[in-house]
Design a protein around this nucleic acid. Structure first.
Lengths: 201, 201
DNA sequence: CCGTTCGTTGACCGAACCGGTTAATAGTAT
DNA sequence: ATACTATTAACCGGTTCGGTCAACGAACGG
């Protein structure tokens, strides 16, 4: 990676990154032409090869970028600074929605890269702490006080239900192509309130 | 499409179909080489071109096949022959799980094909009644009697919750590569029972 | 007004790939 | 042996791909 890339205006950096996310998320690593990414970013292929030594370099840069973006978003959202599980999930989705506003294809790219098995990049992908796993709603149930919830409620199933619905919602949104972040958040807020009324004592 | 294909042993037909589903679900139409499908199916490219006139022919055959398989599965599952919404959803998932047992990549192929926009196949895809939509859990709320459910329950949100969780679950399963149908069904059964205890009066 | 630097690109290259054809092979039944 | 069928290896022309490089234009200093 050429340091010159960082001295580009932020908007242009984002455009190139998004082009990469987009193209690499639609086809496998090998079948994703650098030319297509350049076109999508509105620059020449030569320039892209000036910023990134080769295709692999670009790909791995994007993969690390996902980690960086995700970590930053989760930090800022303060997902884990609340004991309230509903608030936690809400903040988690708000964080993801914000990411998707700037990087619409980050989710799809992340999934695709996580399962990529081209020998040219496979090992390097697995070497980076998987951003994909942090991108998902946390799969494991955090410690909860049963006294807060309706009597006899199976907390594990409750969490599984919420987790699956969240994943399902994000997936549906990311399929449609055009993402309305505000709608996402308000839709999800409604779901959260629904769950609170249903689950809380 | 050459009729000779149908006189092949069922297992071999399935193997070829699955190879097609698999390869076409991982990359776009244009970026999916026929050679790769042939390899996956364990036959030569020439033979594949003997059964199907060309790549497009094969692709559209697969797309129509999805419709056929889906319709058949939904019929046999008798999803709509019950007034019980929980039973309906359960049967729907059982049907899908059964399909995925024989055709592990049918879901991913279906989604990919639905959003395919290569001019060579785009119009023909849209000409077939979209199998993808029937593949999803039904998005619209069926008519329900509020008296059956807990007082004050928002039926629409309830259904949305179940719908999203179902979609999320199927998506997660289809991502992992190896699909354990029996586990899918028993997991989902638990979820359904959880919902029944939660929602029913 | 000239020379230098810097960001950017079009044109190009060799290699690999791809859809599709065809002549030939292997297998089987007569 | 023959005739017919299933299956393939070898091939072809055209395209695509990753990567290089010489050159171009704008900005700038002298």
């Amino acid at each position: 990676m050429n340091d010159k890339f960082y001295s580009l205006p932020n908007k242009k950096q984002e455009k190139i990154i998004n082009a990469g996310f987009r193209v690499f998320s639609r086809n496998s690593y090998k079948k994703s032409p650098v030319q297509e990414i350049a076109d999508e970013a509105g620059i020449s292929k030569s320039l892209l090869f000036f910023y990134f030594r080769n295709k692999k370099d670009l790909y791995l840069f994007l993969w690390k970028k996902v980690e960086e973006i995700t970590m930053k978003a989760l930090m800022e959202a303060k997902c884990y600074e609340t004991g309230d599980i509903f608030e936690m999930m809400y903040r988690g989705l708000v964080a993801k929605a914000g990411m998707m506003k700037t990087y619409p294809d980050i989710t799809n790219f992340s999934v695709k890269a996580y399962y990529e098995d081209d020998p040219e990049v496979r090992d390097d992908i697995r070497a980076v702490v998987a951003p994909y796993t942090s991108l998902k709603t946390n799969k494991t149930l955090p410690p909860l006080d049963p006294k807060d919830f309706k009597e006899g409620l199976d907390l594990e199933l409750m969490y599984q239900d919420m987790y699956l619905a969240s994943e399902g919602y994000i997936w549906q949104m990311s399929q449609t192509g055009k993402i309305d972040v505000d709608k996402m958040i308000s839709d999800y807020r409604k779901l959260i309130e629904f769950w609170k009324g249903l689950y809380l004592r």
